[in-house]
């Protein structure tokens, strides 16, 4: 299958891992579309939704990529080692694998839509970059697939794995199709995200992202055409309340709950 992929920034490790795994599984990566971090609009939106500390964190991730922490490699770094990847840059990876690489100002800009259309992709894998609008979704006939770090339809939106814990929902990654709503597209499958002893907010999130990388690539492993993917309704998704980033107080509450939750 021909697959195009989006990324929120060049050093997005989840996007890089998905691209590499899909290629190794025999799919053709026909295009990688990366949103430029040098956009005032993007920084402004990020500032509004995440605040100054959120922007600092995001910018650090954009430019440095995922780093090992004091307790050892993150789950994504583990995957990177397993996959024997020696780069952290999508640009470098695309160059090494002869894949079309585009940097766009916005994921819904005509440049992005044209890049995906020109690649003749059967499917678009969402690896970040912002909310997708109709034009880019239709450029692959609605075949846009996403690993969402929470159960659907119960936990839509941002910080989903964190909200899953806070709201007492199951901790899972849901692979689903993207439509013009927020996490309202048809469902494909769920994979549990285990909460381990000593887990904290960052490790929980890292586990969920790594689980998402594997769940999405596993879903597509033996698929030859989007028509082979079986999907089901996402009932009541439109009606459910969307989640947004945790504020300070709720982050503190989550830390308490994680302490109690870990076996």
């Amino acid at each position: 299958m021909k697959i195009a992929l989006t990324a929120g920034f060049d050093k997005s490790l989840p996007a890089l891992l998905m691209a590499d795994r899909l290629r190794k599984d025999g799919h053709e990566i026909s295009a990688v579309v990366v949103v430029s971090p040098y956009s005032i609009k993007r920084v402004r939106e990020m500032l509004l939704s995440r605040g100054v500390s959120g922007v600092k964190k995001a910018l650090s991730k954009m430019f440095k990529g995922v780093e090992n922490n004091s307790s050892g490699p993150s789950p994504l770094q583990h995957l990177k080692m397993q996959q024997d990847l020696n780069t952290s840059s999508l640009k470098v990876w695309c160059s090494e694998n002869n894949v079309s690489y585009s940097v766009v100002k916005g994921i819904n800009d005509s440049d992005a839509v044209n890049a995906v259309s020109a690649s003749n992709a059967d499917m678009l894998v969402y690896g970040g970059g912002g909310i997708l609008r109709k034009a880019i979704i239709e450029s692959v006939n609605g075949n846009v697939i996403n690993p969402h770090a929470g159960p659907l339809p119960e936990v839509r939106g941002m910080n989903a794995i964190e909200w899953s814990v806070l709201l007492g929902e199951r901790q899972t990654v849901t692979v689903h199709l993207i439509d013009t709503g927020i996490d309202t597209g048809r469902l494909i499958g769920e994979t549990p995200v285990p909460v381990a002893a000593g887990d904290h907010i960052d490790s929980l999130r890292a586990n969920a992202v790594a689980t998402g990388v594997c769940a999405l690539t596993d879903t597509l492993r033996s698929i030859e055409s989007p028509a082979d993917i079986s999907t089901q309704d996402n009932p009541g998704a439109q009606a459910g309340r969307q989640c947004y980033p945790l504020g300070r107080a709720l982050s503190e509450l989550l830390a308490i709950k994680l302490d109690k939750l870990a076996p």
Binding site: W163, L167, C243, Y244, A249, L250, L253
Partner: peptide, 13 residues
Amino acid sequence: DLRLVNAATKLVD
């Protein structure tokens, strides 16, 4: 619904 509490904390913060 803690989501409502989250929004309220942001307004107050």
